[in-house]
């Protein structure tokens, strides 16, 4: 079992529905976000290209955040999901410093918080909140170890990229390009 996500940059319109859905589902405090939209513009007017990405924790296979955590609050659960145990977190910021994606933030209550792939929904067979609300159906979630899952098929069929692969973290969120 290895959960992963694929996001189709050709279909994403940057509406931020995933961001709002996550904030509502996970009671993310106002002003903070576990996922966010990045717009990349390249070229010189009028010859421009645009890529829109919905970004979040990459639930990496090689997790610097779990490695540098001094208390073990950052940990990996079944399916490769990276989580933080709130009452073990001392708020030292080591995981924030070690994340190349800046995917973690300090919750106003003091502990470090991040995307959980909505593990509370996933264990009931549902998709994460962000995936379930996407109006263009540009996000795919599922088991990468299962060759027949929708995500495995699309990741194998389409051209993909990951963010900052040079950082060596083996991210498990794939952008279809």
């Amino acid at each position: 079992m290895r959960y992963g996500m694929a996001i189709d940059t050709k279909k994403c319109v940057g509406c931020s529905d995933c961001v709002v859905a996550c904030q509502l589902e996970n009671h993310v405090p106002v002003g903070y976000a576990r996922d966010w939209i990045v717009e990349v513009t390249e070229g010189t007017f009028p010859n421009l290209s645009l890529e829109i990405r919905s970004e979040r924790c990459n639930h990496c296979d090689n997790t610097p955040c779990v490695r540098t955590c001094p208390t073990g609050a950052s940990h990996i659960i079944e399916g490769g999901i990276v989580k933080v145990t709130h009452n073990e977190c001392i708020g030292c910021g080591a995981c924030i410093q070690s994340c190349p994606y800046d995917a973690r933030y300090t919750h106003p209550e003091g502990y470090v918080d991040k995307c959980t792939f909505c593990d509370h929904r996933v264990k009931n067979g549902q998709d994460p909140a962000c995936v379930s609300v996407c109006p263009t159906h540009c996000m795919y979630f599922g088991d990468l170890d299962d060759p027949n899952s929708e995500i495995s098929k699309i990741v194998n069929r389409r051209k993909i990229k990951t963010l900052a692969p040079e950082a060596g973290t083996l991210p498990q969120i794939f952008y279809l390009v």
């Binding site: 940057g14 961001v19 910021g93 800046d102 933030y105």
Partner: peptide, 23 residues
């Protein structure tokens, strides 16, 4: 030219625009 902008509301002052967790 290459411009990358976070367009959704990720306004965590400790992380954006530059990481500023340790003082």
């Amino acid at each position: 030219m290459r411009e990358e902008i976070i367009t959704s509301g990720r306004m965590n002052p400790l992380i954006d625009p530059v990481l500023n967790v340790w003082h």
